[in-house]
Design a protein around this nucleic acid. Structure first.
Lengths: 216, 216
DNA sequence: TAGATTGTTAATCGATTAACAATC
DNA sequence: TAGATTGTTAATCGATTAACAATC
């Protein structure tokens, strides 16, 4: 059972993966000690914000010294739940589904991809990095019997809500949604959207309206 | 020359694509009139926020009536710069690059994909939906001579900063970055990141720490 | 010990929500 | 005209930044 941190704002939570990335980088460079000021210079957050953020989860630093990079990295990993393994499936095995299946770091970070699904007979039976593509009709039983926590939706948007309903019925806890719609699911289900066209449209906006805008 | 809206906060800008999506949907359903209250119910923003957001760009509504869906949709399109065409290239033609190249809606929204690039001789010479993959050594000249506005980086992270430097030198205005690093570019260059693993880690966090968290 | 830097409280800033007068 | 709903100002809420006492 992981410790539960309540009342942490999403603003803070969304910064955590960035801390994770930069601490990893420091560790790779064999930097073992860092102050909030130095991190601030690297990451572009204020030192104050960094100390506030980290103190939501515990006092990982030491006055007069700073933070031990190795320890802090380990803590962030734990906070992010990256020390745990998650059964994962991808629904929709077209270009995007395959691209994500091929993304090696999935496995490395504990996202254990066990199957892909599709309706296309040409794809069913194939394997992507040794992970099989099954007929989508087998999805619900597969999820039931294989302890799947996360469903990744890579289907065209027309099918996304239907797939989401089936994932919920099959007792998945979280959905990583790449379809350009907002899924309707019970509120205990975690949905994280990657709305690619939304992101692209921001570029388009800034290209036209930028006059020294700042963006994150 | 598009009108420049200054001092619009990124919080507002990032909501614009969602308005665009919902208005399109209404139009498809042949709904021609909508109030901020009804939009609020659909989209999950408060009616007050919707009116505030829209009034940053002009008074598109009418007291006692609401908003004309068709007109508002058109305005949002213009604000987002979706009535304009952008020369676009993809760097890195692996699974992800190909997935994005195959994403039909790119063209539909004015993102005119003219070339992909790669270092892999097996890929160079291929075509994805009729768009050729060239040797990456030809990138800078191609961008120079073809009026390219946007570079999409789909390379492994080791090469991303180098590619970004070259894109900047070749006078691209914006970078859509899928590599899991924060690019260092001059401040007049627009960078929009899609950090997939950051997004996935949020799921992992919520799976472990969720006790009725709210997320967007 | 003196210097450095955290943890934490207080102040500020910005974004969201509420309220209501204007007006279609 | 009466009813509805916007545009906009004011109030509230939350997140970021500043400041500093605690302490390594």
């Amino acid at each position: 059972m992981a410790k539960k941190f309540k009342d942490i704002s999403m603003a803070v939570i969304r910064r955590l993966p960035k801390y994770h990335r930069y601490l990893k980088e420091l560790l790779d460079k064999e930097v073992y000690r860092i102050s909030s000021k130095e991190l601030s210079n690297m990451m572009g957050f204020t030192a104050s914000q960094i100390r506030q953020d980290l103190n939501n989860f515990g006092g990982f630093g030491q006055q007069g010294y700073g933070y031990n990079v190795e320890e802090l990295y380990g803590e962030i990993k734990k906070i992010l739940g990256l020390n745990i393994s998650y059964g994962t499936v991808i629904i929709g095995s077209g270009n995007l589904g395959q691209a994500i299946a091929n993304y090696t770091n999935l496995q490395k970070h504990g996202f254990n991809l066990l199957a892909l699904f599709d309706t296309n007979p040409k794809l069913i039976g194939m394997r992507i990095r040794d992970v099989p593509i099954y007929d989508i009709d087998e999805m619900q039983e597969f999820i039931d019997t294989n302890n799947i926590n996360i469903g990744i939706i890579c289907t065209p948007k027309e099918f996304a809500q239907d797939i989401a309903n089936k994932l919920v019925k099959a007792n998945v806890s979280a959905i990583w949604n790449f379809a350009p719609i907002d899924l309707k699911v019970p509120e205990n289900i975690i949905v994280e959207n990657v709305h690619l066209s939304d992101s692209l449209f921001i570029i388009s906006y800034l290209l036209n309206n930028q006059e020294k805008e700042q963006w994150d």
